[in-house]
Amino acid sequence: MAFSIKLNTERYTAHLAFSSLVTNAIMLNSLAKKDPTGELIDKCDGNIKAAFATLTADKLFSIHQIHEVNSHVHTARRFNTIYRDFPLVFTDGMKDWGIKIIGIGQAPHFEIEALEESA
């Protein structure tokens, strides 16, 4: 059951693909370890795929921000080293990948300011 998902949060935007190696059991196991209270699943209205994708994207974006890694390949390698209990993120030539980064980046930042009325 391969799928892809686009996420838009206040911190980042992400587009990830998940191979058929990422089963519901793997997603639930990872969510149980990293979010034992089930808060993330509640925020995603019980959607396991969305919760797991959000958890994964949060980890990927944190690596991107903390380590100031600017390429998908370096982010994937660092993720695979740090989060060994997650499915592998695709790097060049990998056959048994579970997650593929299609795109990830910082959410656009904008502000709205009130202008003074002209007399």
Rank of each mutant, 00 (worst) to 15 (best):
E10R: 12
A2V: 03
P36K: 05
T9N: 11
I48V: 15
S30N: 15
S4K: 12
Y83W: 05
T54I: 03
S71D: 13
I82L: 15
A14W: 03
H109I: 13
S4D: 15
I66R: 12
A50C: 04
D58K: 12
V89A: 13
E39T: 11
H74S: 08
K100R: 14
P108Y: 03
T23I: 09
A17Q: 12
T9R: 15
L31Q: 07
I5P: 03
T13M: 08
F86E: 08
P108L: 10
A114H: 05
F86Y: 14
L21M: 03
A50Y: 02
I112D: 00
R78F: 00
N8Q: 14
N8C: 04
E117Q: 09
N47K: 11
I48R: 03
G38K: 06
A25C: 00
S30Q: 15
N80A: 05
L31G: 07
D92H: 06
A14V: 04
M94I: 13
H72V: 00
D92F: 01
D96W: 01
D35K: 03
S62N: 15
K34N: 10
W97Q: 09
W97A: 08
I104G: 01
T91L: 04
M94Y: 03
N29C: 01
E10N: 11
G103L: 04
L40Y: 01
A2Q: 11
T75C: 13
K59H: 14
F90S: 09
R84M: 08
P108S: 11
D92C: 00
N70P: 00
K6R: 13
E10W: 01
T56S: 14
L31A: 08
I66T: 15
F86D: 07
I82H: 03
L28A: 06
A32I: 00
N47A: 08
E117A: 11
S19N: 01
K33Q: 11
K59P: 02
D58F: 01
A57L: 04
K34F: 12
M1A: 11
I99R: 08
D96Q: 12
L31D: 06
D42H: 11
D58G: 01
D85G: 00
K100W: 00
T13G: 02
D42N: 12
S62E: 15
N8K: 15
R77L: 13
M1N: 08
H64G: 00
F79A: 04
G103Y: 12
H64N: 10
F18V: 03
K49W: 00
L55C: 09
H109V: 15
D96E: 13
G93S: 09
P36H: 03
G98A: 10
D45E: 12
I112R: 08
L16F: 07
K33E: 12
D96I: 01
E39R: 10
